[in-house]
Design a protein around this nucleic acid. Structure first.
Lengths: 235, 235
DNA sequence: AGATAAATTTAACGATCGTTTAGTTTTGTT
DNA sequence: AACAAAACTAAACGATCGTTAAATTTATCT
């Protein structure tokens, strides 16, 4: 490990607020949004450079190649999912509570951070070793969720069910969010996280709640404690 | 309309069973599978031709261009979804029944037919007018599902909820199936349709069923009548 | 069998892709 | 002000993309 390797992050804080130059955050966010919209293969380096207001050659000072950019985004997404899982297990007491918290934390994360918003496929585009790593981590995440559901069945908070099928339903509904969520829309990240997690939890709960939010853009009491919405002050 | 235009479908039945030549069904199925796996932009005409055992130029006798191939597949998928919706409305009596039937019929269709299995995005790749048409039809489908859920709220069979959010959950779980379903796997199309529709219906039912299938590969009694599984004889 | 049309191949086209090289500008440090 | 490192640009590379043109094979019908 050479000492020149561990240099400062790209795009150190600029004195002037103007958007000259590329910083790592903008680069990853823009790439994530483009990849998410048009797909990895449907997005050219030129597209990305144009959106960032630089030439495409400039990008190669911040990323070794296009493949690696996708890999970095996958890692960020997977880290977010790992974190959500760990938080859910720690904060929840029963299986159903943990399930709801997992969905809540994961959706909060991917909606709040435009960088963590893919997960969605395009494995073939990765280098073989990277693809293996991504697929393996995703498999472990899925299995973790399945075990979490099973633990809920065991503690009686979740209805006996085919845990594999249930996992697919939860994962599908969660991943779909990245396809319709719009940062400027009428729902913020925490409303979505709360509303979607309520529906999914109800599908598997032993004692399903008797009411769901009828308008998730309105604040409401949730069946059990969730982190409060930091963006909506009481009015 | 010239008389030479309305010719027989490509690949009319061959006397010999050997796989010489391209027929429309194989072409669309193979394209659907490749597009689904690697994405539209990630699949080259050469890939498709190789898989079909012909040269890429040969494909241009059956499809005007690559874009149109994607368009045709979108139309097939949307037709399947339209049909599932119509069937559900006709066969069901209450909103919740219709919801479950919609999921059941749609999943049966996309699992049983490898051609109807995308829906999943890649709109940008279409010609502008085609893209508009696809997006509009998809929007109508989504709105139809939302109205179906609302009708269930009105008739009391579905719990009051944010129907838009509920629609997203159902659509997400349904579309995700195309990402994990494997034709040769341990679940057949009808087991998946039954198992997934049961979970989704439970998430929104006013009177949620007290039990779900614990192993959807095993035949079981469903809460209300569904078309019987044509592939599983009684044992 | 011979005529006709459809199906497929070979070969090439311009365009665009991701990436690299070499040179220039900007920035931070002294 | 002078220097060095980093950031960026202009221009080009080979490869591959979707598509087309012309030639050839295969199948169908009389």
């Amino acid at each position: 490990m050479s000492t020149t390797q561990n240099k400062r992050p790209i795009g150190r804080p600029k004195a002037n607020g103007r958007s000259k130059g590329i910083n790592r955050k903008d680069l990853l966010e823009t790439a994530a949004r483009l990849f998410n919209d048009r797909g990895f293969h449907g997005t050219s380096i030129q597209d990305l450079a144009t959106r960032l207001g630089v030439t495409k050659a400039a990008l190669y000072h911040h990323v070794p190649n296009k493949q690696d950019l996708l890999y970095q985004l996958h890692m960020i997404s997977l880290d977010a999912a790992d974190k959500a899982t760990a938080q859910a297990i720690e904060e929840g007491r029963t299986g159903i509570e943990r399930l709801r918290l997992l969905v809540y934390h994961y959706l909060s994360a991917i909606c709040a951070s435009p960088t963590a918003c893919l997960i969605l496929l395009e494995d073939d585009a990765l280098r073989e070793d990277h693809a293996k790593e991504v697929i393996d981590r995703r498999r472990k995440l899925e299995y973790g969720l399945r075990e979490l559901i099973q633990s809920g069945v065991d503690d009686g908070s979740i209805i006996p069910c085919d845990t594999k099928a249930a996992t697919f339903v939860v994962v599908g509904a969660m991943n779909w969010v990245t396809k319709w969520y719009q940062p400027g829309g009428s729902w913020n990240a925490y409303q979505i996280a709360d509303g979607i997690s309520a529906i999914l939890a109800r599908s598997l709960a032993s004692n399903p709640v008797s009411s769901l939010p009828t308008d998730i853009s309105q604040p409401q009491l949730t069946p059990f404690a969730l982190p409060s919405d930091p963006t909506t002050p009481d009015s």
